[in-house]
Amino acid sequence: MKFKVNGHEAFASTGGRPFDKKKPLIIFVHGSGLTHMTWVLQTRYFAFHGYNSLAVDLPGHGLSGGKSLKSIEEMADWVSDVIDAVGHKEASLVGHSQGCLVTVECTSRYPNKIKTLSLMGGAGAIPMNPELLSLAENNDPKAVDLMMDWAHGPAGHFGGHPVPGLYHINTGTMLAKSRTIENTLGVDFRACDNYKNGFEAAKKIKCPTLSILATDDKMCPVKEGKKLANLIDGSQVDIIDNCGHMMLLEEADRVLTVLKKFITTNYPPLSS
């Protein structure tokens, strides 16, 4: 659905169900250079089971208008503004990769608004390889190819998409190349590289938190994810074997099962 946030048109997938203000809200925040479509194997379940599922396109990404935001802090404020813009007072947040930095910062800034936090492939900081950052900022498609290589684990490189007929790496590549690379991936990578507040923000988080990590994640390795999780009181950690950074696609069913249990327990749906 399209709506306005701070005067700019924003887009979020509602998981194929109409938005209903009575239902609790879950906001899914994508990773660097990507779009709402990375969440398709999680959002539709929640949308059909008593939640408003909003997989947002960050400004300047996917179907959202405006320019890409230049810092994780601005993105965190924007997510909070989305909650207001759709007429809710609170939400559950789910982030992937850069989306974890955004949702951690948002939860620390707006503790009363955020009821649960789910992090996938998250870390307290995501410093960028300087060459990769330079390629993305110079609009070089090789940046996307490198990201797709590193983001998929050894098993994911062979394929085996949970949706029959879809091929992981090429789909991700097309998503990341759907808009100008320097304006999406380049800006996002720089924002990640500049962000230094992740560990401090994590210490302030009091809501139920889940971290899903993967053994073959090269971009946010398990030890980095655990370092972040250990700073959050009562944080749960789930580690997936034989899986890379794109766990939300590579092991979509496992991710959904863990996420479903965590969110329905800590932030129950509107019963039908």
């Binding site: 194997l41 539709r44 379940y45 059909f48 949706v163 029959p164 979509a252």
Partner: peptide, 8 residues
């Protein structure tokens, strides 16, 4: 059936 998850 609702295309909420992949599978056969």
């Amino acid at each position: 059936f609702n295309l909420e998850r992949g599978g056969h």
